[in-house]
Amino acid sequence: MFWRFGRGVLAAVAATAVLAGAGTVVYSAQPNPVAGGPAGAGLCSGQASTARAAATVSDLRAFGDCEIGRRITTLGQLSSAVSASKGLASSDAATLSGYIAASKSGLTRLKATLDAETRLPAVRADILRIVAGYRVYVLVGPQVRLTIAADSELALKPHFDQLAAALAGRISAAQARGKDIATAQAALDAMNAAVAAATALAAPVRAQLLSLSVAKYNTGGAAPVIRNARTALIQARSDFRSAAQDGRNVLAALK
């Protein structure tokens, strides 16, 4: 299912690029671990096949309209994710909402342009702009999701600070009662160290992500930033998970 969709749409876009005669645009094969992709990556494969076979203005327009439509659906989902996020800082939410709104209005204008085209070269150029002009799936989507993750990770810090204070108090009380607190203290130290490491990893990510643009992506500067951001956030999440386990170990040691 996934491979059929992934290959189908890649082939469709690549074929369209060939039809449009834009040999300079390179569509790299993106990993697509979720079957169907956002709003269905295989959603437009039918239109793509028709456009490949006939390459008339109306066929290409149908393909382009479909690709714009699924991007607008995806942008709506991203907008919902921003609204629903508990950890996203309000300033970052406003910035991301601005990026999403700009992409949506740009694609809506592009659809109107595409629908009014009557000549094949103009339609082909419009279709290429759907991808290269907006980068919804390889830039905006990761930018939104990873910024949510980064802010949410940083939002864990106050929770751990509160927990650390409570656990330190319990350790002191246990010590005052004459209990051996070595294991509990070691677990608390490990928790604090893991939180510090995770916070250091997550802290710079949001600014790096928010500075990305379509132009930067098209010149090759954004993809490595996204890749590194994802790696850092995965490691930070793992550190926070370890910290939570350390916290449970403190409680267990004090029982």
């Binding site: 969709f5 992934g6 189908g8 749409v9 890649l10 876009v13 569509y27 993106q30 990993p31 697509n32 671990p33 979720v34 992709g37 956002p38 709003a39 990556a41 295989g42 995806t74 994710a81 996020s85 508990k86 950890g87 991808v131 980068r135 919804v136 799936y137 390889v138 989507g141 990761p142 939104v144 999701r145 990873l146 949510i148 993750a149 949410s152 990770e153 939002a155 864990l156 929770h159 751990f160 927990l163 996204i226 994802r230 956030l233 995965i234 999440r237 926070f240 998970r241 939570a244 916290g247 449970r248 409680l251």
Partner: peptide, 24 residues
Amino acid sequence: LDQINQLINDINNSIQDSSNGGGE
């Protein structure tokens, strides 16, 4: 700790969703 674990699970979802290329 339960609340923290829930927040970590939410983060996990965001990271997973971010790697969905959408076949662009």
